[in-house]
Design a protein around this nucleic acid. Sequence first.
DNA 1: CTGAAAGCGCTAACAG
DNA 2: CTGTTAGCGCTTTCAG
Lengths: 330, 330
Amino acid sequence: MKKKLTINDIAAQANVSKTTVSRFLNHKYDNMSEATKNKIAQTIEASGYQPNRQAQTLKTASTHTIGVSVADLSNLYTSRLLKGISTFLHQTKYQMIIMDADNNLQREQNNLQVLLNENIDGLIIQPLAHHPDNYQIIQDNALPTIQVDRYVEPFTWPAVVSDNFQKSVEVAQLLEKNNFKHVIIISNSITGISSRMNRVQGITSHLQSIDISYELLEIENSNDWQIQLQFKIKESSKKVAIYALNSQVLWPIMRVLKASNLKVPQDVGVIGFNDDDLADLVAPGITAIEQQPILIGETATQQLIDNLNQHKSNTDITRIKSKIEIRNSL
Amino acid sequence: MKKKLTINDIAAQANVSKTTVSRFLNHKYDNMSEATKNKIAQTIEASGYQPNRQAQTLKTASTHTIGVSVADLSNLYTSRLLKGISTFLHQTKYQMIIMDADNNLQREQNNLQVLLNENIDGLIIQPLAHHPDNYQIIQDNALPTIQVDRYVEPFTWPAVVSDNFQKSVEVAQLLEKNNFKHVIIISNSITGISSRMNRVQGITSHLQSIDISYELLEIENSNDWQIQLQFKIKESSKKVAIYALNSQVLWPIMRVLKASNLKVPQDVGVIGFNDDDLADLVAPGITAIEQQPILIGETATQQLIDNLNQHKSNTDITRIKSKIEIRNSL
DNA sequence: CTGAAAGCGCTAACAG
DNA sequence: CTGTTAGCGCTTTCAG
């Protein structure tokens, strides 16, 4: 193992003081002779010296690390969000520390405390809770923060999310056009999750205005939702469609329909959010909303870094466009 | 914003020296009076003091951070691997810094350098390259390392991977049982990726022994693989099956079959790795190999941490069992 | 144009 | 049982 070199070693080898080396490292060439500059450059090059990040941090109080708190690490939406963040960060001097809240409020709190202890320069959070009071700790530490996918209310930090409301209005219009008369909106827990709430608000606002009936099925609150769903569809006298608020419910729904021999779209229409890119392969081809999680991640990261660098300080909600892919399930 | 407290503040408030506070922080109660212990505990509790990690690190040369280098951040396999790592780490004092190589060797090298600069205590790597020489930098720094999903050869660091060879032998047996006479093995680039190489070796070793013909189609080397594939299937006089070495090729293959009206399993059998959990929903239900990436992540992390703590120092390849789910595509 | 010296917050001899 | 002191590797006044 190579012995770790320090700034002192370089200073000694280059016959200058460590102050000068430090200046070189930080590109403060204001008044530095070409000679010394070259000499230092050479010895650093030759030795492969790398400054110690922790020592720099201790002195400058900037870790060049940003924290990322995600709701659940193990799904493709998250994965792509992270890809976007990583892609943007790659061209900066920042690293990321990712923490998984695992959909657990207590764990999310712990994670934030850990991130704070790490002295992160900024935070990207996909919040589990809906009220900023849950994140007092962020405010107390005046931590530069940006939200992704969801946001707390009242408004506290900028956010980058999908165009959930607007796209859900379009879903309603599409259902109307296809003559559906009743809509079952299905989601896992909605309470406090702005993206899902916005989706419900979007579709219901339009359905109400055109007199199409609807109901909400929150499947985390029920153990027999599969039975209920079959029953609702089979007993309905109206032409019924399902709006699945995310892929975590869309695929289980498709399994239920398949198992109970309900044909799509003959017996029931289906539209939902497709986070796995396989909606085209699931028979009969599911009409689905495609979000842009990578772009959300990139955009959020850019805004956060810009904010840290004082280039500007965005404080708004940015809505990233998603797209409805028409297939054969309506 | 609360002013950041230091160990000096606590020492002053508790009327002890900072040494004593430090000892308390590090649970060195050997000879500490209950009185001071309580006093310190109280003032820390009351003030919400949290020690500065960078300062601790500078002194102890341990960051309690482990680096994670993944091949590609944006797929579900990776996502679950990370979930496993995160789950295990959560019960330790270690944090993780994740770096995405984005399937780019140069970028992987940069990432390793960055991680080294961060003074990580250990590394979990899903290596892009197959020869340890590519990772000289890890060896130079004697960085405790464990490989996941794939490994370099000759043997250098312990690894936790799927039972790729064994499971591929079973695939061959299954194809034999179902009377297939020709197998098209399809993958994206195989060279240097041990998991894929093991899969090829596993299936071909058995096919050879029972005289079933096979061929390999590496779709990263060809732009017209879709055409080729159709042609091979339609022109074959034998009963042919496809073995898709991962989901990134499995789903595109299914799209081709669908588009060219080739019926599964009548015209061609299909078996492949299912990393997205949707193999049952894709008609006619794809017989697939299910890996356990979460368990791989957990196991690898445990081994690494055990190694760091000197509990033991595993130096072998650990193979995590996967499972073949029989459906209707063979 | 460059260096000496102080100090970031913490830990670990060593001393008592 | 507890405190004094030095120092981890770096940056930053301040002085020259």
